[in-house]
Design a protein around this nucleic acid. Structure first.
Length: 582
RNA sequence: GCCCGAGUGGCGCAAUGGUAGCGCAACCGACUUGUAAUCGGUAGGCUAGCGGGUUCGAAUCCCCUCUCGGGCUCCA
């Protein structure tokens, strides 16, 4: 058994011990399930009263008692009838028993607690080493929102106190990278109750980061034969009925706006405008592929509980494009998009991401043959490009299979970023076709795709990925010039002017503060370069360079510093100085 | 949407039934400074809601609404 499997076993056993602790502290407990998860475990309970965080220490103490008592875990096999009697007052367990295919079920007992469980478990409770209950949450029985909501206690468990401490320290570090916290500290964005939940205001610094990304994005798309288009943010409801969105996603649309007796809605997607542009004239097979790209803002009425800073919002800008192509062009186009997505990921420092191929869901349109062909071609491209991916069965969109790239935030949550989706639905509904070399009409294949995701989510992930320490080319402010005394302000200003000529973003901190105070503030703002100027520098026409890593590079000529910074920006380097860690 | 928790000056926090305090920031003044916090002073909130209730009295207790956080569900 590997170390990881042992750890998982121990975590699972800890959840049983926690259940025993809860059983002894509360009356009338009904038990749900309690598996091991990444880093720890949870158990779901139905209790007479709501749990509060204050309950956790008592439960932890009880767990320790059970651990110290060193109860063995005993495995027993019983038939279903016996199991039903054992768990006669446990409706959730009875439900599980009914669903087991075999007549024999296994039970694990430790101390005064018995649970229906496949196992395996540790030999004895004393094998549980370092654990901590972390939080409580509501969770639907079996993850179904029509089922009762149980109370879940989450915990973490490790082989040693040192590993537990290490984990908790990493969590604390990760919380510092939270884009919602950094967004405030670094003045990147805000969300206002007065405007509405999930609607983002981009502050000048955030907007600058976004502009830089968008400029890069546009240039790379134009290079690859995309045409930039703009389409309206609202459209007649009838259009969304034709597309099928009204039927499938009505609950996620903002309510219609009535004007002149016509109903309009805020667009939840950009594709329809692109389709109408395509359909504005007859297209020949020679015209294809056509690639329409738009940084298109869309609005979706996301349920209140799911909103999360800039990462999950109600109004967001997709870096969208729709490729209209012939069936024989699918593979080449998908490959092109994947390569572009890879370029985006590597340019922005995401070297660790997951690729998922999602296949036909239960509710779908089109023929199974179309689905199979499209899914195969997506898989073929992934294999040709030697990209490792996981299958996500049944997770495709109703209109076609897709490839998703998932990015992780500081706390390890995966967010969908780039996505490539084949669409069989819209070409049919809108009669999107081309004239082939046979002179006949053929349906086009439409590919929806983003290579970043949305600007909001991407900047959120980017902020967490870098912990706010953006690479120089993305840093809103690249240089702070710090005059030591008032008499150095003119010289500092002169330097700023020279940096401006090179389009380096700088500011002179001319406040009547001490140098060390100005350095502290520049550090906290994670500004890549600090240029300190005092008598020595003025006299020798130099600057003293300090990096946000804390390194004092020393006195250099302005020319040297300028060319260093320029080179770092042009290379879109991940670090502020070659060989530096930031 | 569901369960639990929270909402105090720009920001971070204190005050759990008796007339709201602290730090940072802001503003004013002094200091003119050598690599992460110079000193002094001033102003600023009636405590999410021009919501309802309990009480002699509410930031503090109860109800409603809104927003945020942790999860669940969802995420075209």
């Amino acid at each position: 058994m590997t170390k990881e499997e042992n750890l998982e076993k121990m975590r699972h056993s800890t959840s049983h011990v926690m259940a025993e602790a809860v059983q002894s502290l509360f009356t009338g407990v009904r038990f749900g399930i309690g598996p091991a998860i990444e880093d720890g475990f949870y158990y779901d309970f139905e209790l007479a009263r709501p749990l509060t965080p204050e309950d956790l220490p008592a439960i932890e103490n009880k767990i320790r008692e059970i651990v110290d008592a060193d109860y063995p875990f005993i495995r027993e096999e019983v038939d279903k009838e016996e199991a039903r009697q054992l768990f006669a007052d446990q409706p959730y367990k009875l439900e599980l028993i009914d669903e087991f295919p075999d007549n024999r079920v296994t039970i694990y007992k430790q101390g005064s607690f018995a649970d229906l469980c496949r196992g395996p478990h540790v030999a004895s409770t004393s094998e549980i080493k370092a654990f901590k209950l972390t939080h409580i949450a509501g969770a639907y029985w079996r993850g179904d929102e029509r089922s009762p909501m149980l109370q879940r206690i989450y915990g973490v468990a490790f082989d040693s106190e040192a590993e537990l401490e290490g984990y908790l320290a990493r969590q604390a570090e990760a919380m510092k990278r939270d884009h919602r916290k950094l967004g405030k500290e670094l003045d990147i964005f805000s969300i206002h109750e007065e405007i509405g939940p999930g609607l983002v205001c981009w502050h000048p610094r955030g907007a600058l980061i976004r502009q830089i990304i968008e400029d890069f994005w546009k240039a790379e798309h134009i290079k690859r034969g995309y045409d930039i288009v703009y389409t309206p943010h609202i459209a007649k409801l009838a259009l969304w009925k034709t597309s099928g969105h009204w039927d499938f996603y009505r609950d996620y649309l903002y309510s219609p706006i009535e004007v002149e007796g016509q109903e309009y809605i805020l667009r939840p997607m950009n594709c329809l405008g692109h389709i109408l542009i395509y359909n504005s004239q007859l297209r020949s097979y020679r015209d294809l592929p056509l690639r329409y790209a738009e940084l298109g803002t869309v609005y979706r009425y996301e349920r209140t509980g799911v909103l999360h800073g800039m990462a999950r919002v109600r109004g967001f800008t997709q870096d969208d494009a729709h490729i209209f192509c012939r069936p024989d062009q699918i593979e080449a186009e998908v490959a092109g998009v994947l390569k572009l997505a890879q370029l985006m990921m590597s340019t922005f420092g995401f070297n660790d991401y997951e690729l998922l191929l999602s296949t036909r869901p239960e509710r779908y349109v089109g023929s199974i043959q179309m689905w199979d062909e499209a899914t195969d071609s997506l898989a073929t491209v992934l294999e040709k490009l030697e990209l490792p991916y996981d299958l996500d069965p049944g997770e495709g969109v109703f209109y076609g299979p897709k490839i998703d790239i998932k990015l992780r935030d500081a706390l390890g949550h995966a967010w969908q970023g780039p996505t490539i989706q084949v669409d069989f639905n819209l070409p049919e509904r809108f009669d999107v076709c081309y004239i082939g070399d046979d002179g006949a009409e053929h349906p086009v294949v439409m590919i929806h795709r983003t290579v970043l995701g949305s600007m909001e989510r991407f900047v959120a992930c980017l902020t967490e990925h870098y912990g706010g320490v953006f690479p120089v080319w993305l840093s809103p402010l690249q240089v702070v010039i710090i005059p030591i005394a008032d008499r150095h302000v003119d010289y500092a200003q002169q330097i700023k002017n020279e940096l401006e000529e090179e389009a380096i973003r700088s500011r002179v901190d001319e406040r009547a503060e001490r140098m060390s105070w100005k350095i502290r503030e520049a550090q906290l703002q994670k500004i890549p370069y600090m240029l300190i100027v005092g008598d020595k520098e003025v006299e020798s026409s130099n600057v003293s360079l300090r990096l946000r890593s804390g390194e004092d590079v020393g006195m250099r000529s302005l020319l040297q510093v300028k060319s260093l910074i320029k080179a770092v920006i042009e290379a879109r380097a991940q670090t502020a100085l070659e060989g530096e860690s930031i």
